[in-house]
């Protein structure tokens, strides 16, 4: 520590004499930084890196089992891509070891359904949450009596654990529950194919819109009021102000919020697992990819590993598209927001 201290001796903000050299300082700070960052990286390597690597290795292994001829326990050995083919191409093995297409009821045949359900949830919930989030953020950005109450109220759904949220909406959506009583309907919210999907979408929207609204509000607060004053001088309507000023200016914050929510929505588990048990319709109307992985764990680690790796890759591709194609710069946007907020 003491050598490092000597090297970074010059105060950071003060313009340095050229002989000290920014390069030398940087090299010194790099050394300190390595020591400071190392524990975090090592721990993350243990809790994330190790499981991911071993999941990938497992996904290429056959399930171990008893050899029918000898009665001895044998390791599975290399399986090639058969675990992936099981999910993506719905290939199963019959009792004599031939490759057949998976029978209905086998978890393998649910893959594309689960992928569809997961993306359906992600797109619909994030669209709803973005729309409501922008609306809530605009209201909270205005000055009115009771604004404190709104800002407090909006934190309540966020603070409730998702497991409790799921149970709460399970009760609200009970057949004789308050939702049907208020709507004067007899909808089977937790077992009908589309009703159960919308039950999850409604509960998720309730729980997560506040988070979106807060992120968007942070983006709204850095728009200076005089931009709107100028627009009004030029005769812009409220809608024009929103479309031409607010939306373009909060676009970076909005994109970051949408990215976070999409990635979060694609791994959705708690809400459907507790609210509908992944069921509904013919039995898997709300089975998401995460639910399918958990269902598979007890039927074979290696297939489950392949599926969780596929899930991970899907989420990674979506994130990549956001960052590369749509140019969402998470780090820079948040730094800009902080600078704006610090003014």
């Amino acid at each position: 520590m003491s050598t490092a201290t000597e090297v970074v001796g010059a105060p950071a903000g003060v313009p340095r004499a050229p002989r000290t050299g920014a390069k030398k300082k940087r090299r010194g700070e790099t050394r300190v930084a390595i020591y400071l960052v190392a524990p975090t990286l090592i721990l993350l390597a243990v809790v994330i890196g190790y499981p991911v690597v071993s999941a990938i290795i497992m996904s290429f292994q056959k399930d171990a089992g008893l050899d029918p001829a000898t009665g001895l326990f044998v390791a599975g050995g290399f399986a090639g891509i058969s675990n992936y083919a099981h999910w993506i191409l719905q290939q199963c093995l019959d009792t004599s070891g031939n490759t057949i297409s998976c029978p209905p009821g086998n978890l393998g045949s649910q893959f594309w359904n689960a992928t569809g359900v997961t993306f359906f949830f992600a797109v619909v919930t994030v669209a709803l949450e973005t729309a409501f989030g922008v609306w809530m953020a605009i209201i909270m950005n205005r000055t009115f009596r009771g604004r404190g109450l709104v800002r407090a109220a909006i934190l309540v759904p966020w603070a409730i654990p998702t497991a409790v949220t799921a149970k709460l909406w399970f009760f609200i959506f009970a057949t004789s529950g308050i939702a049907n009583a208020l709507l004067q309907t007899q909808i089977l919210w937790t077992s009908d194919e589309w009703a159960s999907r919308f039950a999850i979408i409604i509960a998720d929207t309730w729980k997560t819109t506040p988070f979106m609204a807060l992120l968007i509000l942070a983006g709204l607060q850095i728009i200076p009021e005089d931009v709107y004053e100028a627009a009004k001088m030029d005769g812009a309507t409220t809608f024009q102000q929103f479309w031409r000023i607010t939306l373009p200016l909060i676009r970076p914050a909005l994109m970051v919020a949408v990215l976070f929510r999409i990635l979060d929505a694609l791994r959705i588990y708690d809400l459907p697992a507790i609210l509908t048990g992944g069921g509904g319709g013919t039995g898997n109307a709300t089975t998401t990819l995460s639910i399918l992985v958990v269902d598979q764990i007890r039927q074979g680690f290696n297939s489950a590993s392949a599926l969780s790796t596929i899930t991970f890759i899907i989420i990674f591709i979506v994130a990549f598209i956001f960052v590369r194609v749509l140019g969402t710069n998470v780090v820079r946007t948040q730094q800009a927001q902080q600078k704006g907020a610090a003014k």
């Binding site: 992985v293 680690f301 790796t309 991970f312």
Partner: peptide
């Protein structure tokens, strides 16, 4: 680090199990 926080829990659960 930001990416790590967005990491899907299911990708960890099978090997950990």
């Amino acid at each position: 680090i930001l990416g790590a926080s967005m990491f899907p829990g299911v990708a960890l659960i099978t090997p950990l199990f």
